[in-house]
């Protein structure tokens, strides 16, 4: 009985495979909230498929680093054509694997603070790490880390070993304070309520009122404004600048659909695709399009901080240890 079902299951799977053979399939490894129902994935897929005579297959892992790890594990045999969604803090690591190729796309028009020049990575959105607060509860948000340390404010952050913004904060503090970073961390320590595994736990705790501010993105208030029509949330503008997170896509070397992959990436940075990004992925678009109103409530940070990816690659472990040291 069971084997009969099993056989028919295999047959069904095979026939799907056969159907898919007729059109080329573009396998995109990405992170989970990108591919979720409400994320940009399904909408991008629908739009792109209208003109490409191809099928887009979004394969999500729990986060972008996991997608990279999957490709590393699968090596030459990977069915991935594009890795989408890793950010610049991990980009150099990806490059080091030698599993990706140059994009050969003109990215000079790309609208990213401080510009863009990578031959391998195509940026498709960006954001700044920032502390988000509820303006009804916190009247005088800090304007710098020093100010934050002086005030009686509780914050929630994420562990840099398991979370992207968590690592972002390490880089943010490092880029401003250099040798004094450890000192800053030890002064921040009493302000930190907890350091969660991922962003979602932190944000949840913040919304439940467990802290005055949470480490998140400058774009977080826009979500509440646009989706929930709730304008209580703002991010604290830090005078010395905010660390940039740039999300990129990259073509896999072993891909048999490299032309199609390139076509997708070119389209991804076009105005048509970029229109989708802000209100689905809650990041800033890289094309010159008009931002939805909710994004305009606060000015973008004036200074964008970014450490060269090579230097990040070589030092991030040491910087994390330095931070951990400060917590002892």
């Amino acid at each position: 009985m069971f084997s009969k079902y099993f056989l028919s299951l295999i047959l069904v799977l095979l026939s799907f495979g056969a159907l898919a053979q007729e059109k080329p399939t573009l396998n995109i490894y990405t992170y989970d909230s990108f591919a979720a129902d409400w994320g940009p994935g399904p909408k991008l897929k629908e739009k792109f498929e209208q003109n490409c005579n191809c099928t887009i297959n979004l394969i999500a892992a729990s986060n972008s680093i996991s997608s990279l790890r999957k490709i590393q594990l699968e090596g030459e045999q990977t069915k991935a054509d594009i890795l989408l969604g890793i950010d610049t803090s991990i980009a150099a690591q990806a490059l080091e694997t030698g599993l990706f190729i140059k994009h050969e796309i003109d990215v000079s028009d790309i609208n990213i603070p401080n510009g863009w020049s990578s031959d391998y990575f195509v940026p498709f959105d960006y954001g700044y790490f920032a502390f988000v607060y509820n303006k009804e509860k916190l009247k005088n948000p800090p304007t710098s880390f020093d100010d934050l340390i002086k005030q009686d404010i509780k914050i929630i952050v994420q562990d840099p070993r398991s979370s992207t913004p968590g690592l972002g904060l390490v880089l943010w503090i490092k880029s401003i304070y250099k040798e004094q970073a450890k000192q800053v961390w030890s002064e921040l320590k009493p302000k930190i309520v907890t350091m969660t595994k991922g962003w979602s736990e932190s944000y949840n705790l913040f919304l439940k009122g467990e802290a005055d501010m949470v480490l998140s993105y400058t774009t977080s208030p826009a979500y509440h404004k646009i989706v929930e029509d709730d304008d209580r949330f703002e991010f604290a503008q830090f005078e010395k600048g905010h660390y940039l997170q740039i999300e990129v896509g990259v073509i896999v070397k072993s891909s048999k659909n490299q032309k199609l992959a390139k076509q997708f990436l070119v389209w991804l940075i076009s105005k048509e695709a970029q229109e989708i990004i802000p209100t689905t992925n809650w990041m800033y678009p890289v094309a010159n399009i008009e931002l939805p109103k909710g994004f305009m409530e606060q000015e973008k940070p004036k200074v964008a901080l970014l450490i060269d990816e090579k230097i990040v690659f070589e030092n991030s472990e040491a910087w994390i240890l330095e931070m951990l040291d400060a917590f002892k």
């Binding site: 070993r161 690592l167 994390i320």
Partner: peptide, 22 residues
């Protein structure tokens, strides 16, 4: 990790996680 309040209350699993992820 959620209720621990910071890296001083953490488990070996954090290190394992970090070894795989980072």
């Amino acid at each position: 990790l959620m209720l621990g309040g910071g890296p001083s209350n953490q488990t070996l699993e954090v290190a394992i996680y970090s070894a795989v992820r980072l």
